[in-house]
Design a protein around this nucleic acid. Sequence first.
RNA 1: GGAGAGGUGGCUGAGUGGCUGAAAGCGACGGUUUGCUAAAUCGUUGUACGGGUAACACUGUACCGGGGGUUCGAAUCCCCCCCUCUCCGCCA
Length: 445
Amino acid sequence: MLDIKFIRENPDVIRKACEVKRIKSDLDRLLAVDQRRREIQQESDGIRNQSNELSGQIAHYKNPKSKLYQQMLEKGSTPEQLKAEGDRLAAESAALKQRLKDLEVENQAVGEEFKALMLTVPQVPSDKTPVGTSDADNKEVRRHGEPRKFDFEPLDHVELGKRLGIIDTERGVKIAGTRNYLLRGAGSLLHQAVLRLAMDTITARGFEPVTVPVLVRDEMMYGTGYYPGGEEQAYRCERDAKSLVGTAEVPLTAMYADEIIDESLLPMKFAAVSTCFRREAGAAGKDTHGIYRIHLFDKVEQVILCRADDAESERHHHEIIANAEAVLQALELPYRVLAVCTADMGQGKVEMYDIETWMPSRKGYGETHSASRFGDFQARRLNLRYKDGRTKSNIFCHTLNNTVIASPRILIPLLELNQNADGSVTVPKALRGYMNGLERIEAKA
RNA sequence: GGAGAGGUGGCUGAGUGGCUGAAAGCGACGGUUUGCUAAAUCGUUGUACGGGUAACACUGUACCGGGGGUUCGAAUCCCCCCCUCUCCGCCA
């Protein structure tokens, strides 16, 4: 959500943002509704003002405890006279109310339309964001590491996982339907190890570890920008008006919703490992092979809440990308960083980078991380503010987030790149400490 | 899930229909005074939206968990919801 004042004063900036982000938002309608909304407020406030004044007078005639009532009695008025005058004023005040009722009814409708329209206005992308029309226009920023050249025919993670007995998709599907899986034995250990490595890395870098709810109120889905629009992608529990989150970004970012944070506490940095639930609606037939696109996975997510300062949030953006890179480097995985273009970045984001890791079976880089910077877009929706030390005013925070690691997707490159000719998989050094020192995953005899 | 109690400003806590945007205390901020960190004293001290201004000032409205209702008038009365606490039940 943006500031309506900003929208009012810079409609062309918003129009441009809609265009480059390929987002439809009826700006003309919004401005008209905003206009009407303010007219209604002015008129109703005026009526309430009159009515409040009348009520103040009525009190004197109808409330025997009031000083003026006593004075008027002393001056010779009879209680009957006072009551009559009070009734006359009350009738006058009641007459005012009809117009107010009408206005309130209209205001209800106008207010709802205003809110709905406001939720569709896109955040303005940064100058640094490449303008594009699809993900094909995302710009590679840098690469790290070399994709491995095999001197034997490498297996893909599905085949590897099956032979090693560590990934069981058949039984996963039997139990839970398509896009489900089981990790077993060393596969389960590997999954946990990756998460632990990520968690240890991120907390060593000053992020507070948090254990979060993954079934959250719908408000938090709206607040973080997943709703409206993303309802189809989430598992929603209708009875409870709650949704299963697709990422710990939601609870972490919403943690301080409706609060005013002391500026001295910023930036706040959080990390959480959580299960992530995704319906993957509309992705039927896409990435069906293996454990790339699945309904349920675990992810370590990092979130920063900081002051409303573009330079500062940009710095943090680079920081959270570096954090993710550190984990990939520890895992010795080759990856590249992409600047995501306007058409591919989503409504709320100012700037966004993806990290893609080399996956031999895909013969290319596959997305493993996504780092977003929102400005105050989420904070406005969440009513997440801090008190500015100098001006003493309450200001919406800036929010940012990035993956630290998501598993089992990261197991795809991990298994495929570390496989040996005999079908075993070498465990990266950084993970061995989390796996009872296991160096190689081998098929059971 | 059942029974009960409760949700008031940064905090504690008064207030059961008008003179209450809200006592009192604490805290915070500013001034004065005595004077090395303390005390005394005076004052200021909520948020949102609208109008207004170059910006202040100023001004209107709303807000006592949220939403509706009664009334000329609601923190106060009525209804629904949310949340917290206590007890019982169930349970990883």
